[in-house]
């Protein structure tokens, strides 16, 4: 019974991942983006759980729980806590929403083209969904390039990381627990450090617009 639902469940989860990523490009509010990030974390966890059930591996299920805890709850909570405490202004991105969504569409097409070349031999369902992961990496990068506030940059970075995780889960059928644990802790640490850094920036300059950090050149 599960085998017939499996492709639809994979499609649902990856669709949620892509949708949340695209919505993050559209929304300017930092808090909304954080909520979307949380949803994305849950979608990723669901994807991992589906793969775990399909492959009947308990370890992958544990990984999915870990993903819920870190990406679905811990990270968004840290971000939201800090943002509510400090941010007064919304993001003013360098790209307007319409152009942003068009770019997302183009990036998604590009990733499908690239993946069709790279994974042409692989006909499994999860490999079929892998381009979504690549698209998320590109969208994360797009967020990094177009957002001004340090907080939004961080969200872009996390989307990028989610994209990498998605590709890893879909193409290799699950990542070993220790590896996933290490990566999650790394990301958590990076986020905490960047948030401390953003707090220092705000104390010093009154805002976190990284456009003002221009002294770092010869």
């Amino acid at each position: 019974m599960f085998a017939s639902v499996f492709p639809q469940l994979i499609g649902l989860c990856t669709g949620a991942l892509l949708l949340t990523s695209a919505l993050m490009v559209w929304r300017h509010s930092l808090l909304a983006s954080i909520r979307l990030l949380s949803v994305q974390g849950f979608a990723l966890a669901a994807l991992v759980a589906v793969i775990g059930v399909e492959e009947r591996e308990a370890e992958v299920i544990i990984v999915s729980v870990l993903v819920v805890l870190v990406k679905g709850m811990a990270l968004p909570w840290v971000l939201a806590h800090e943002t509510r405490a400090t941010t007064r202004t919304d993001e003013a991105p360098r790209l307007n929403p319409t152009a942003g969504l068009l770019t997302v569409a183009l990036l998604t097409i590009l990733s499908y083209v690239v993946a069709s070349r790279l994974l042409s031999g692989d006909t499994s369902i999860s490999a079929h969904a892998a381009p979504i992961g690549l698209a998320m990496v590109l969208i994360g990068f797009l967020l990094l390039v177009t957002r001004r506030q340090a907080g939004s940059q961080l969200i872009g970075f996390l989307v990028l990381d989610n994209g990498i995780a998605t590709v890893a889960f879909l193409t290799s059928g699950g990542v070993p627990l220790f590896l996933e644990l290490g990566i999650s802790l790394d990301v958590l640490l990076v986020v905490v450090i960047l948030y401390v850094f953003a707090g220092r920036m705000r104390n010093k300059f009154g805002n976190t617009d990284i456009d003002q950090l221009r002294k770092l050149h010869d």
């Binding site: 690239v114 990068f141 990094l144 390039v145 001004r148 950090l213 050149h217 010869d218």
Partner: peptide, 27 residues
């Protein structure tokens, strides 16, 4: 030096464009 004006966005864009170029060449 004009290409390296110290803006993080610009440096990020360079890497982004490089990544896109690599992907396009691959495809």
């Amino acid at each position: 030096r004009r290409a390296q004006n110290g803006s993080i966005h610009r440096y990020l864009s360079y890497s982004f464009l490089a990544l896109l170029a690599v992907l396009i060449v691959v495809s």
